[in-house]
Simulated assay, not measured.
Amino acid sequence: MLHRAVEDVSTGSDSDYSSSWISWFLSSKGNEYFCEVDEDFILDRFNLTGLNNEVTNYTQALDLITDQLDDDIQDESRGNLDVQARLLYGLIHARWIVTARGLTKMNLVDAHA
Rank of each mutant, 00 (worst) to 15 (best):
S19F: 07
R95K: 13
D38N: 13
F46W: 04
Q84K: 05
R101C: 12
G30K: 05
D44E: 08
D44Y: 01
L2E: 15
E32M: 07
T11P: 01
D44K: 02
G12W: 01
Y33K: 13
R101Y: 12
F34H: 07
N107F: 14
K105M: 11
D40G: 03
V55R: 02
T104K: 15
G102N: 09
M1R: 06
A94Q: 13
R4M: 08
R45L: 04
N57D: 14
L51P: 01
S23D: 13
L103W: 12
R4K: 12
V9P: 00
S27W: 01
D8V: 07
S15V: 09
T104L: 15
L64N: 02
R95E: 03
T104A: 15
T49M: 08
N53H: 10
T99A: 11
D14K: 10
N80P: 00
L26Y: 04
L51F: 05
A113V: 14
D38H: 11
S13L: 06
N57Y: 10
S18Y: 09
Y17T: 03
D63M: 14
I42Y: 00
W21A: 03
E7W: 06
G50M: 06
Q68F: 03
Y17P: 00
V37L: 07
D14F: 09
D16C: 07
N31W: 07
D44R: 00
L64M: 12
F46L: 09
G102Y: 09
L69N: 06
D70E: 11
R101W: 10
S23E: 08
R78S: 04
G79R: 09
G30R: 05
N107Q: 15
D38I: 03
E7G: 02
A61R: 05
E54D: 07
F34N: 05
W96I: 07
Y17C: 07
S10R: 11
L103K: 15
V37H: 05
T11A: 04
L48D: 01
L88C: 05
I97Q: 10
A113D: 11
G79W: 04
A113E: 12
G30E: 06
F34Q: 03
D63W: 10
L87D: 00
W21N: 02
M1D: 09
H112M: 09
Y17M: 11
I92S: 02
N53D: 12
T11S: 14
S27N: 03
Q68S: 11
T66S: 13
T56H: 08
D16A: 14
L43I: 06
H3K: 06
I97F: 10
S18V: 13
Y17N: 08
D110N: 15
L103N: 15
D40V: 08
L69V: 06
L108N: 14
I73G: 00
W96F: 15
I65Y: 01
N52C: 07
V83T: 07
S77K: 10
E39H: 00
R95Y: 04
N47M: 01
L108E: 15
D75T: 12
A61E: 06
L108Y: 13
